[in-house]
Design a binder for these strands. Sequence first.
DNA 1: CTGAAAGCGCTTACAG
DNA 2: CTGAAAGCGCTTACAG
Lengths: 259, 259
Amino acid sequence: MNRPVTTIKQIADASGVHPSTVSRALDPKKRHLVAADVAERIVSQAEALGYQPNRLAANLRLGRSDLIGVLLPDIANPVFAPILGGIAETLSAEGYAPIVADAGNATTQQISFVETLLSQRVDGLILATVSQDDELVGFCIRRGLPVILVNRSEARDRVSSVVSDDDLGMQLAVDHLAGLGHRHIAHVAGPLSTSTGALRRDGFVRAMAHHGWRGVVREAAGYTREAGARAAAALLDGEATSQPSSLPTICSPSVCSTC
Amino acid sequence: MNRPVTTIKQIADASGVHPSTVSRALDPKKRHLVAADVAERIVSQAEALGYQPNRLAANLRLGRSDLIGVLLPDIANPVFAPILGGIAETLSAEGYAPIVADAGNATTQQISFVETLLSQRVDGLILATVSQDDELVGFCIRRGLPVILVNRSEARDRVSSVVSDDDLGMQLAVDHLAGLGHRHIAHVAGPLSTSTGALRRDGFVRAMAHHGWRGVVREAAGYTREAGARAAAALLDGEATSQPSSLPTICSPSVCSTC
DNA sequence: CTGAAAGCGCTTACAG
DNA sequence: CTGAAAGCGCTTACAG
């Protein structure tokens, strides 16, 4: 870094005191340990020199980074924009900053991102990437790295998560379509290995059953336009799949007279 | 940080060599300075202990952070999702990580975010927030902090920017509507203090003029749904504004017989 | 090829 | 109330 940065030592020299005194004067919680006039002199000297404390140094000493890693499966997916917004807002209010990684859905790649974050000494992780039984969550738990989930949850609740009510969502969607007079409704489900895929599928089947109907479900290979298009095409070709065994059998237009 | 982390010294102790030798063995570029067998022993020892170099410490020494600050005016706006995606992808390929800040449009707040980033010793800044003559850009230039712009640009090109071709975009939009048979076209412009607001407005007027038409323009107070709604309502009420003096006068439905 | 030491910029016991 | 010193975990000249 070739641009000039002011250090505590420079302020100490300029103020004619010991660096430790500068450090105290500049810390609101320790300022009371310094004579009022000396503190004031130091503070104005610091301002004059445009002092910005080096948090890299402070954090090395304090064993933290003030950084929270955020792992997203697809950062370019607008779903995550407001989620990231909430994360950034709350973190910055608490003195933290988010360091975001577009980690995809492959566990090995995710772990490599986490190792990078670990070497940056992130203080915790927010994962939007998890599968129903997520390897990375186990990894974090074993390393003692604080972690919470957003967007998707695990099947067993090892850690806290913030997710939407997919069951209610599907109920509202089905009821809305039913209200418009539709009867033959199909659902392109997200990957059933994710909580969102499975819960929305279940919610759809349940909501349809509530109307006395059987829905058609087709699982998409991923949360992408391409996978959605393939699933929709398959659906139109009469291939339906993926019914949960505990729920009513799902029919396909080609085999079921109800649809 | 209460979770255990391995250090170079620990590896040195476990391998019976001096820390500096460990440091060399672990750095691919310096490994050749170490006897092959010793290097191998150290490397496997490091793996066994799950060593993750502390980049906080390394970077303090090296005077960098491997962090690039990204300032967005509204992180919850999906426009920025793919932009952030491209930034994250390229940065991580180069060994950097983005630290994103939702800094809004107010300069004072933006500067306070930048001061935080500065104390984290970011190696550079990407601004998606700039106005046509941006105070923050001047601030960064004065501090010698590398900065580039995305999404919006300044009127004078003090620093590099990556933006879309708004003139072409408006031309395509107007031609599309014209092709559908529309003749009376209004444009809700973004704030004219931003390059996007001004350039799209200009592009719209130019594209309309190309068809021999005069367009109606209404400037919105900001890039929000609410501001857009207010501008559209005003437009419907017959209030049009904001023509650039160098371009044809813009009419309003209430005063112009052409519209 | 290896070791001993200094130093990045902080913070915090420990003395006085 | 203030100073002197150690140490966070690295990297890199400087010796040998």
